[in-house]
């Protein structure tokens, strides 16, 4: 049986892992390669690396880091942050990343999704969506959550899937960093609206939150950062717990 995926996310700044709360107040969380290796040993199913300060000058440092990650870990990993063109995607994929994730650039230029998926296959393209509940609607924000796009999250997710996205990484800005649980309502809506995998992100605080998002929505993966980085939820314990809840999981 296909298993649900537990995905630690490493936010990268200047080649260090960092963690913010509600996209702000950033603190150091360690060396990304050491952390990645630890997660692989603990049973993480995939990893996501998001370069949160990606700029053109930093591009070269990032591809170097991707190369090192690819040499050290043997589970699939996604790299995102500042991928604005097919060229950017090419540099990351050819350094050894299995998938790239696009966010703001895909909103500004949706054709980018099609370009990358035509070149490398749909399975390579993750569209990351940052969403916030505003006036009764889940809306899409871009540029690290700073800019409102006027797009409804469900509409954008469907369009991204039609354009060739292989996966949606859905982060609720309301929940991110709160440790109060995933945004099950919008995750459910989107995971039922598209026929590609949806990864829930933002708000994990307890192992029960993971069980809840898998039981209440069609998400096939759940992503978290700080609860893993700082050891609040050890991955082996989380996976054993999910198994007792009859959620298909890789032990």
């Amino acid at each position: 049986m296909l298993k649900k995926r537990i995905i630690p996310c490493l936010d990268i700044k200047d080649n260090r892992t960092v963690k913010g709360i509600n996209f702000e107040n950033i603190v150091d969380a360690g060396d990304p390669i050491e952390l990645a290796q630890r997660y692989v040993l603990e049973g993480a199913d995939e990893l996501v690396f998001l370069d949160i300060t990606a700029t053109q000058e930093k591009r070269k440092t990032l591809t170097e880091l991707v190369r090192k990650i690819a040499a050290e870990i043997n589970i699939p990993f996604t790299v995102g942050g500042g991928i604005n063109s097919l060229e950017d995607a090419k540099a990351i994929i050819e350094s050894g990343a299995d998938k790239i994730s696009v966010n703001s650039a895909a909103i500004l230029n949706p054709e980018l999704i099609t370009e990358i998926s035509k070149q490398y296959g749909n399975q390579c393209v993750v569209v990351a969506i940052d969403t916030k509940f505003v006036n009764g609607e889940w809306m899409v924000f871009r540029s690290g959550g700073k800019i409102s796009t006027g797009l409804k999250a469900v509409d954008w997710a469907k369009k991204a899937a039609d354009l060739g996205a292989g996966e949606i990484l859905l982060t609720s800005m309301n929940n991110d960093g709160t440790r109060a649980g995933f945004a099950c309502e919008i995750t459910k809506q989107i995971s039922e609206a598209v026929s590609i995998p949806v990864i829930a992100s933002g708000g994990a605080g307890t192992r029960e939150h993971f069980a809840e998002v898998f039981q209440e929505t069609n998400a096939t993966g759940a992503l978290a950062a700080s609860v893993f980085h700082f050891g609040q939820i050890p991955i082996p314990e989380l996976k054993n717990y999910l198994k007792t809840q009859n959620i298909p999981i890789r032990i």
Partner: peptide
């Protein structure tokens, strides 16, 4: 169901040298 299949899955049958030491529960 969702296509592509993306993720970890186990086996319902296995044989041969490629799978020495591997069992059906392995993903």
């Amino acid at each position: 169901a969702l296509v592509p299949q993306m993720g970890w899955n186990n086996f319902t049958s296995l044989k041969g040298k490629l799978f020495d030491g591997i069992n059906l529960e392995n993903d």
